[in-house]
Design a protein around this nucleic acid. Structure first.
Lengths: 346, 346
DNA sequence: CTGAAAGCGCTTACAG
DNA sequence: CTGAAAGCGCTTACAG
């Protein structure tokens, strides 16, 4: 077996010598360039095999000015209080897991590797910008966990290629993918009303987050369309606990149908109802949002509005790669249609 | 503001010219080398500020032979059937989120960036090895999701620096960190017995996974120490569903105390008991393992054996960095003590 | 304490 | 279709 970490690794030079051709030729076959004589291709591949050659990425990046990596960052404003699970808590959100998986799947075939970074402080945000400027990554795939988030603006200002997951919190010339949040809320309301609920309430996400805002507006519109008066909305923070707390308020107000703006809070809604001895979905029906693994963590399992995350992640990757090729040109956002996944909670 | 993506980025050369010193001097102050005249430090920092200089990572890596990144990989055997959430499912495990967070926190101060990779197929495993051999990462931090896992052996054979989370499935000269799984199982059993349970059952993880095996053995030993006869163990796959299924069997056998080998299955145990109309913890008490966010997803919340993941992650990073400096020397594993987190389920 | 010079391992015009 | 040569942007002995 060639090159077992023994001695120094084989270089292009070594391969060229063994194959008896120039370094340029080796480079051409390694990179699959056209117009190379079959004879040369063969002898070079031979030499690569016997030397165990693997191209040095740094050397290649230095000349091509392409790192072959994308920075995947989860950002948000400073959270002074850290949860008991530390910074990992953001990553531990099942929703993020699904997104990360989708991103990885769509990046891999294009041969770009995802570097993970958290950007919750000014210092960390600065590091994100530096990382790209030093050429360590070709661009950024950003998902904001909170709003307002200064990072998208900083990235745009620095001329860093970036694609966001979900609409930025203020107008910005930047590409993003998003689900049609209003349509999703409508799906939830229609379903709840169809099964007989009349006193509907919403547990919203943090007010400043655009997606949360859109879901609230969609909820209100859908209610109006049904000629129904919604209970006053109650805000949560996308956590299970906040979902429970918010739902208790709705319960006090007499809800019989809860639309939670994400699955974690949907789980919280189910738990809150059950802690009052209520039966879900008979006494209170609950619909969540996302279709994350959290939806299966409660009984009855959560009926939820599914975002086509994997598709959206693939589109994010595509938009970023496009942006790298033609640095000019506008970046238009892409909106995806949500679907309803009916399970036991509504 | 300097260098806004306009024109080409400033290089060492540019800084040197502006500062009126040699490139070597600039390099020295950029890297904080000692023995540089204060006068030079000052003028260089000045020039860096006005040029907006950021070192090119590829150029640096080419000469230092250090990428400044570590590959974080989740590996396992091929799983022919993919879950409804695709490959993201592995990452969506709340346990992994906590680990990833810990790894990131401990890597950051050492200025190494985590590149994420999944290695579920032979092809992906080969890519992991290549990635390090091409110099894109300095080493690997590996967590196996399943056993048997060929990757640790392949990495060792290729001479790639690697540290594992948890004991490998067969003897290997490789560093790893692990929790004292037997002690953890003992903690669970002692607690269950202390609260009056006598007919204890265990939901194990997949048989081949060393940690699952250790927890089972610890469980059996602890039972023996109490002079108790355990119910026949039932195996799960670390998922909520498998925990439910396994627990139904234990319930049929008349358990009054369940030790689940991870929190996901612990949640499943609680759900299974409740679906039979049983009250947790009065009729059946449940103890999980890990202390992941899943533990809070059910009511009553899960009593669980906590692994000091953040500490373990930090140690993984430390072991890897040490290994990079002195490529020789043995790597001894580190074992951590688990603690019991008492919540409502037991 | 500082600078001139070599060299890290590639890719890419440019001739031929 | 192929090769000689320049150059990407750094770091690091080596002199001085």
């Amino acid at each position: 077996m060639p090159e077992q970490g023994s001695g120094r690794a084989a270089t292009l030079e070594d391969v060229a010598r063994v194959a008896g051709v120039s370094r340029a030729s080796v480079s051409r076959v390694v990179n699959g360039k056209p117009d190379v004589a079959p004879r040369i291709v063969e002898v070079v591949q031979q030499a690569i095999a016997t030397t165990g050659y693997v191209p040095n990425r740094a050397a290649r990046a230095l000349v091509t000015r392409r790192a072959g990596t994308a920075l995947v960052v989860v950002s948000g404003a400073d959270r002074s209080v850290e949860g008991p699970w530390g910074p990992g808590e953001v990553l531990a959100d099942p929703f993020f897991g699904r997104l990360a998986g989708g991103l990885m799947s769509s990046l891999r075939p294009r041969d770009v590797h995802p570097v993970l970074m958290l950007a919750l402080t000014d210092d960390e945000r600065a590091r994100v910008v530096s990382y790209v400027r030093e050429g360590s990554a070709d661009g950024v795939l950003l998902v904001s966990a909170e709003a307002p988030d200064p990072l998208p603006g900083q990235l745009v200002d620095a001329g860093v290629p970036v694609v966001l997951f979900s609409r930025p919190d203020h107008a910005l010339p930047v590409g993003y993918v998003d689900v049609d949040n209003r349509a999703g809320a409508r799906l939830a309301v229609d379903h709840l009303v169809a099964r007989g609920c009349r006193r509907l309430g919403i547990v919203t996400g943090p007010l400043g987050v655009p997606g949360a805002q859109d879901r609230l507006e969609g909820f209100v519109e859908a209610m109006a369309a049904h000629g129904l008066e919604p209970l006053p909305p109650v805000a949560g923070t996308f956590s299970v606990d906040s979902g429970m707390a918010a739902t208790r308020e709705l319960l006090d107000a007499g809800v019989d149908g809860v639309f939670a703006s994400n699955d974690n809070m949907g789980v919280g809604a189910v738990l809150a109802a059950q802690e009052r001895g209520l039966v879900v979905p008979d006494d209170v029906a609950v619909v969540g949002f996302d279709d994350s693994t959290a939806a299966l963590m409660c009984r009855p399992a959560l009926t939820t509005v599914r975002q086509p995350i994997e598709t959206m992640a693939a589109q994010m990757a595509r938009l970023l790669l496009e942006q790298l090729d033609r640095t000019d040109g506008p970046v238009e956002p892409t909106l995806y249609a949500p679907t309803l996944v009916v399970r036991g909670s509504a």
